[in-house]
Amino acid sequence: MQPIVSISGLHHSYGDGVARKLILHDIELEISAGEIVLITGPSGSGKSTLLTLIGALRSVQEGSLRVFAHELADASLDIQNQVRRQIGYIFQAHNLLPFLTACQNVEMALRLLPEPLPAGERKKSAHAMLAAVGLADHAEDYPATLSGGQKQRVAVARALVHRPKLVLADEPTAALDKHNGHVCVELLRTLAKQQQCPIIMVTHDSRIQDIADRIVWIEDGRLSGAN
């Protein structure tokens, strides 16, 4: 079976000339369907850079990075957007649009489907996803009226509602307390498993490491795998 993500010889650096700083060095990594991979390591080790590269948010400088059989090195904007639309992204901050209800926020992901759903279907689908994260009663609430944990669960619903082929999570528990962080990550894991969707999660939160199938350690831009 073809891996969902396959990275080889990936280098990445910021800045030019003397100020040039190597962030990622000769990264080799493969991720298969259904796998939950945690990338962990100290701050500034290049974790987030790696994640934004996989998410097609940043251009590949050197090496090969294939996501869903698309080569992202020298990929056009169009290819980048196609890849982005098949990924569910969860950030440290929930980043919900404050002027949309929870349901409307979730629907934003559904509006990008290659075959658009009728408005009614879209709403139903978003409601079902919100129910799955335990927010059935809060679908019509605006983010400002929700708690931190609830908001991040809306973000989880938004990341999963369009049945992505891959979920990328960047420190999703950083803004949450232990209990809410755990609830959130548990939900993410359960729902992703149901959809056979792999997760790559960047975190240095040791409290949630138990959910991982595999943990990858990154330090000074170099990977060292641990299973």
Binding site: N81, L96, L97
Partner: peptide, 15 residues
Amino acid sequence: NHLPQYATLKAMGYT
């Protein structure tokens, strides 16, 4: 006021 949210929309695949 909405820069991070707009950036999120872009990460989701909005052009």
